[in-house]
Nucleic acid binder design. Structure first.
Lengths: 201, 201
DNA sequence: GGTTGCTCTATCCAAAAGGATAGACCAATA
DNA sequence: TATTGGTCTATCCTTTTGGATAGAGCAACC
């Protein structure tokens, strides 16, 4: 079993590899501090079974880093790891071919069994991550959903109106509807609620 | 040697303790997921030699958590640990009596020697902490960081002013500073940038 | 037919946010 | 000593946002 852990925190990297190598005899863990380093390591070492990619690190740029790795090494198993991830990121990781998502709240023993699961060819999705769409909570109308997309980019009512070919008043109407449904006092709070609830697409 | 590691990421906690216990025979490492849990553990276990506190975790609230621990356990050695190391926070940690600052970019062996150093009664200050000012993207001042925390809750300038006992104008000043540093046009865009960059914790 | 929900627009108004400029204090530093 | 950076405040001003109220078109449904 050969693992490559890509995380810009040397401490996390070393501690993880040390732990895994102790708990799983025969395991070899290699480290990388960026996506670039990971790619170099993968080119040199064709025997790597699983790559664990930190979501927030140099070269990741959202899920671009995952995309890059998947494009160059389409057969490689890749798992994402993150302390704080938005549900849309988790969904995006799986649609881009990741075999697992590892929140850092996982215990070390859970991590080991997750690695076993993924090496066995299964996907690992922890129970507490919310990958669900908007089934729960607020239900938006078509327009509200569109406006919310722009809100999540921090656009002003005027900009949204121009983009959707509406009057500014109408945009305000939908913004108010969104805030009401999310229990938010203003657009900024609405955006944060949306992120927390994983509505952010 | 008894260590208490307070970090809300179970993975980091377990991996670190596993590593330390292997490298330093006789060491006992206890974990806590929040400042509250750490305080409870410290009350029960009077033999703890060193507390390692993650800077970004529930109950920390800047350096308040450190202050709390120092007030209740003035003789305890406390080291801070953090992924992003900003000079003002590091200085603040030392003025509040911390015996060391551990950036997560440290290697695991460096960590072990840092622990030895601190247990021997010396302070541990990594070499690169003063130069690593604007390493990755935005570096906020103390006030900006406080204001950003409220921005991330969708609070208005007036509310923030009341909470921080400032005038509204001053809050606006800091909000503008935050937006400038994040390249955001307004507060909503600023919070989204912060979320995307993983500054929101 | 009538009702309901989504849509769009309009006209008000008040509050909040954003921006510019300027003065002042203090601590650290060159 | 002079300077710089962070902090706080003030006075202007414009733009944006939020909120209320009201009217109208349209499609789905009972």
């Amino acid at each position: 079993m050969r693992l490559l852990i890509a995380d810009d925190h040397g401490l996390v990297r070393d501690a993880l590899s040390s732990h895994i190598e102790r708990q799983a005899p025969g395991a070899v863990v290699v480290g990388a501090a960026s996506v670039d380093e990971a790619v170099v390591a993968l080119r040199q070492d064709k025997a790597i079974d699983l790559l664990i990619l930190d979501l927030r690190m140099p070269g990741m740029n959202g899920l671009d880093g995952l995309q890059r790795v998947r494009t160059e090494f389409p057969l490689l198993k890749v798992a994402l790891m993150s302390g704080l991830a938005r549900p849309d990121e988790i969904r995006g990781a799986f649609t881009r071919g990741a075999v697992g998502f590892l929140p850092k709240t996982l215990s070390a023993t859970e991590l080991l069994s997750a690695i076993q699961t993924m090496l066995a060819g299964e996907r690992f999705i922890p129970a507490d991550v919310n990958t669900a769409d908007t089934a729960d909570g607020a239900s938006f109308t078509r327009r509200e959903r569109e406006v919310l997309d722009y809100l999540l980019q921090g656009r002003s009512n005027k900009e949204i109106a121009r983009s959707l070919e509406l009057e500014e008043v109408t945009v305000k109407l939908h913004v108010r509807g969104i805030c009401r449904k999310l229990g938010a006092k203003n657009r900024t709070q609405a955006v944060m609620r949306a992120v927390e609830m994983g509505i952010a697409s």
